[in-house]
Design a protein around this nucleic acid. Sequence first.
DNA 1: CTTGAAAAGAACTGCCT
DNA 2: AGGCAGTTCTTTTCAAG
Lengths: 152, 152
Amino acid sequence: MIELDDIDRQILRSLARDASQSAGALGRTLGLSQPATWRRIKRLTEAGVLRGRRVRLDAARLGFGVTVFLGIKLARKGHVNLEDFERAVSAIPEVQTVEHVLGVYDYRLRVVARDLSDFERVLRRRIMALPGAGEVDANVVLSEERRLGPLG
Amino acid sequence: MIELDDIDRQILRSLARDASQSAGALGRTLGLSQPATWRRIKRLTEAGVLRGRRVRLDAARLGFGVTVFLGIKLARKGHVNLEDFERAVSAIPEVQTVEHVLGVYDYRLRVVARDLSDFERVLRRRIMALPGAGEVDANVVLSEERRLGPLG
DNA sequence: CTTGAAAAGAACTGCCT
DNA sequence: AGGCAGTTCTTTTCAAG
């Protein structure tokens, strides 16, 4: 783990909100010069704390109006190959995230679909057909608020 | 909704993977010139499909080794003010996402903590103290794979 | 759509406190 | 560590085909 001071934390916070700002502009808000800010960002990147920049896509504007959280219990526990299951899940294009979890369910999936009938197709023909899939629980997302976590 | 052609989709896919690449470099991989690529990115941004750039932070390297998914049922449904609940949830720094969902649970939270005993503190003193919080279900994340969704 | 070019700005480097 | 000055590269905006 890397040692972070207060300024590093402010940089991470700010970049988590908006990574399109320049090192110079960011530094100005912190009372730091452009090279000093840039060197800190480079150090945080090399330490692995900053892991790449990504654009956020608006799923709704792309025609994917439905987001669903699925909890999946594996059937015949102990006889199911987790790698097989994960490989099969990853091959479903509508799946955005796959999380192996501990608790009532074994996996949590975030799935997007164009609408509810499209989701039904994904659920019946893709999810239920997964090797080892047992009980499935679904939560349709009504609204979502993304925060930044303990650093935000 | 905006009309997207194949090249637009490739641009979105590529930027969702890595937003740090320049318009020129991206265009080269697609057989497009720098200005053409840049105009498409601008158009996608103005259409609201591209919603800002963000850095990904490595929670583990920042000292947050535990990620937990919570499902929360509201007690005394109908008597609970959703806005009050959401405001209180958003004030908990360890909460990364708040999703209002339809299904067995009313809300799904993604929570990070330094370790399990830190998570217990958050659960007991923060989550259980939420106004209207009833039954709580927890899934500790073992491993996570983020995909890009139907466009990736 | 393309190429070419120009101006502005951001990224990066080396040196100095 | 930080700042300053300079170089290189990208971004952004043209004009013209």
